[in-house]
Structure formats: structure tokens, C-alpha cells
Design a protein around this nucleic acid. Sequence first.
DNA 1: CGCGCGATATTGTTCGACAAAATTCGTGTC
DNA 2: GACACGAATTTTGTCGAACAATATCGCGCG
Lengths: 228, 228
Amino acid sequence: MPPTPDRAARRTATTAVEAVIEAITDGVKDGRYVPGQRLVEADLTRDLGVSRGPLREALGRLAAEGIVENEPYRGAVVRRLTRADVVDLFQIREVLEGEAARLAARAIDEGDHRRRMAASLRTLERFKRRPDTFAYMDENTRFHELVVELGGNKLLARLIGQLQVHAFRLLLRRLVADGNAVDDSIREHEAVAHAILDGDGRAAERAMRRHVRRSGEMVLRNAERVLG
Amino acid sequence: MPPTPDRAARRTATTAVEAVIEAITDGVKDGRYVPGQRLVEADLTRDLGVSRGPLREALGRLAAEGIVENEPYRGAVVRRLTRADVVDLFQIREVLEGEAARLAARAIDEGDHRRRMAASLRTLERFKRRPDTFAYMDENTRFHELVVELGGNKLLARLIGQLQVHAFRLLLRRLVADGNAVDDSIREHEAVAHAILDGDGRAAERAMRRHVRRSGEMVLRNAERVLG
DNA sequence: CGCGCGATATTGTTCGACAAAATTCGTGTC
DNA sequence: GACACGAATTTTGTCGAACAATATCGCGCG
């Protein structure tokens, strides 16, 4: 599935296009590419060592996913999110991830689902004692990916993956700025995990929706600092 | 917004890439390109009169949107939906369009929303008396687009637009095969429209979710005929 | 100061070329 | 006749150079 290949597949990007996509998405996530920044083809071909063909193809895909904006004869720009965009984004994430949590709870007794969710829960515990914002962001991503995967809806996984890119950047900035936010986030994850382990779909959905909503509110409270 | 430009923008595709995307999506929608069919670059460059660069770029975007599948050195194939894919698709549509209906109800008193929804409702009435399956498909699309637009969440509009490409093709076949389905669909649309006009978000969401769910069930009942 | 107008930079597209991988197909073997 | 094997063919992935179309910048002019 192109939009969100797993980490292993990412590192071994088979084609030049995938390599470019990976490079730019990662750059946007960790802030190397800032919203509003122009992505000039000549620079990218030089930095990434690919020719214009694959580069343009990659930019086109990124535009389709909403990570980049592409106007004819003006080139690609890292998408700048307005406040309204952020509201929209978290509104959708709330609905989609809530659904994912519901599905995950419903399917908790399939395969190794219970074991994996329990393992994720134990990992969370560790972050409670020794807070490390950056490492936690990784774990945060993994938790959300796990919930989506256990839900089993591939299309849902794909859509959420698209949205995750922006959300990641916004959250990262916010969490770095406020250590307490990490603790809150962990507690909310735990609530979701327990509901899923209980097989209680409604509770899982409720908990996940609240978690996403809170993340959104947190980001919005500091919109000036966090928006591109 | 690249994934779902309005009709006017479509007709005047500014770039070759857009022209290709338009040609292929339309081809998939109206069945000229069948799921599973290979899209060989050489053929397309000949038929569409563009070189491989823009063509490949377009295919990349279509792959990102899930209309086409692209495996390295194997080329692009019109995506073949499995039964599970259809289940996933309608599950997501139910959630997203339900949310759209909820938002539309909440915003019914803004601008000319009420007038436009009422107009759409009147148009539906006409189809009750004089059924015309093909014309109704257009009206069906317009109704869903209207609900999403009134909801006001641009990201939601975009995501639903992506999903609509496949759903459209599936529904078209099914509705053509069974005239009664049109009547049911109209009644369900009316229920949604009334709830929105009442400003009752919960009822609107409920009605829309039921409508989408029924569409999905209808498609699945005839999966053998409808799946690629 | 604002405005037009070239010079420059950047994008959109084409063409031709070649390597890499998949697919096809013929051939020999059992 | 079925099947494995390998070479020929096809198709994709990528590059590089070239050129037109458009945008952007800077400078002179009023």
C-alpha cells in the first residue's frame, strides 16, 4: 500500500519515486521542510540524486495526498495548514481513528491481536517512568498504527496514514514544548488500550475519539506557534 | 483541490497530467477501463497523445488515490476490488458521509444552505414520478456532494471524493440492473434531507449511515456481477 | 513611487536512449 | 504430451538534453 508502507519497506525504497516520497514526507514530519517552503525541482534533483522524471512523479503523488501543493508553472510548496484546515483534520481523525478503535476492539480475539496490544500497553508503561518526548512520538505513531492494523480495514489504514503526516508534525512541535502533554497522551492511550483489550467497541471508540479531540485542542490552543 | 476538481476545471485540464488523470478516471467510472486491466504505457501515450513523463506522473497519482495499482516493473493495473475491499469501502463511507450529514445539519442556517437543500429535495420529488435511472445517478452524486459541501469540512470533501470513484462504478451497475433500488434510494435521500433541514445532526447522521449501509448491502448481494 | 518591460528562473513536456526486470516463446528433455 | 529451461521480446524505470510556456525579478522610465 503506497501511502503508508511499513518501516522496513520504507528503508528499502525500491524505486526512485518511493525514495523521493520518503525523503520529503520525512522532511516534512521532522520539520526539515517547513510549510510554505518552495520545493524547487533543480535543488531536489541535486540533493536527492534523481532526475526530474521520478521527482515530478513523486511530487505529483505528494500533492494527491495533500502533503504538497502544486500549481501549474509555480511549482510545489509544502502545504501550509490554516487554522480551519487543522480543525477539519482533527475532526476527521477523530471519526476515523474512533472507528478504527471500535473495529480493533471487535477483533481483539483474532490471531495474536491480544498479545500485541498487551505488549504495546507494557511499552507505554515504561514511558511513564522515563519520559523522552522524541522516543515517545515514535511509540505514539506505532500505537496508532497498531490500533488501525488490528481494526483490519485496509482502506481505513490508508486514509489515516495520509492524515498522519500533518498531524505528526503538529503534535511533535506541541509535545516538545510541553512535557505534561506526554503524560496526558500516555494516559489516554492506556484508556484506549484497555477498552480494546476488554473487547468493548463503544468504549474504545469513545476513548480514542476523546484522545484525538484532546490532541487537536492542544494543537489549536497553540496554533500561532504550531502552524506553518 | 486536485482529487476532485469541479466539472469546469476538469474540462479545461490545464496540464497534460491532469488530462491523463481525467481520461483514466472517467474511463474507470464509465467502464471503459475494467478492473484488472493492464494499462500499458506505450498504448496510453499513443491513445492520449502525451509522452511517458506526464503519463507516469499521472499513473503515480492515480496509484496514490487507489484507483490504480502499481507494482515495480509490472506496470499499472486498474484496481480490482475484492469483496473485502468493498466491505471496507462502505464501512468508511458510512462513517465519513454520516459525519458529513451531521455537520450539514449543524450548519443548515448558514448562508443559502437551507435554500439549496430544499431545492435538492424538490428535484428528488420529480424523480419519484418519472424514474430515469441514469439521470438519477447524476442527481444521486449531486445530492451527496451537496451534503458534503454544506458540512463545510474541506478535507472530508476531499476524502469522500477519492472514495466516490470506486463506489460510483459499483453503484451504477447495480442500479441499472434494478429499477426498484432507485425508489429506495430516493426515500433514503429524503430522510437525510429532512433531518438536515430540521437541523437534527444525530438524525441526519443516522439516516445517512443507514443509506450508505443499504447501498453497500445492495452491492454486496450482487457482488459476483459487480466485482471486477 | 508606481508601472511596464525585458532578462532570468522555473516549470511542463518531448524525445531518445539505455539498464533492469518481467513476460513470452521456442526448444529439448523426460 | 507435459514440463523445465533459457534466450528473445516486451515493458518498465531512469537518465539527460532540449525546448516552449509561464512566472518572477529587477531596472529604467514616467
